[in-house]
Amino acid sequence: MKIKKNIAVSENGFVFDPTTGDSYSLNEIGTEFLNLMKAGKSKEKIQKEIMNKYDVDEITFEKSFHDFIKMLATYQLIEDHEEK
């Protein structure tokens, strides 16, 4: 599960795919997810960081993260999509 290398993410959560010209808006958590993924962190590490920072249980995180990954895959923003 790797974000395409050339994807640009601004601090405001604006995502730009230079290959297609598509752009997307993320909210705060989405931006955080994407930046952590871009930094090459595993799902486990992302989960740990998010759960330490926010008052969120494992099931809610799992669901949100899973939905997010599926959406990234739909928009072809990830290079390989392996559900873990």
Binding site: G13, L26, E28, F65
Partner: peptide, 25 residues
């Protein structure tokens, strides 16, 4: 997919995109 689309975890609120934000590539 022509316009800016959202990719937001469920239950979250979409933030407005700042005009200052840049897609710098």
């Amino acid at each position: 997919m022509k316009k800016n689309k959202t990719a937001i975890p469920p239950g979250k609120v979409k933030k407005p995109v700042s005009s200052k934000s840049k897609a710098v590539l």
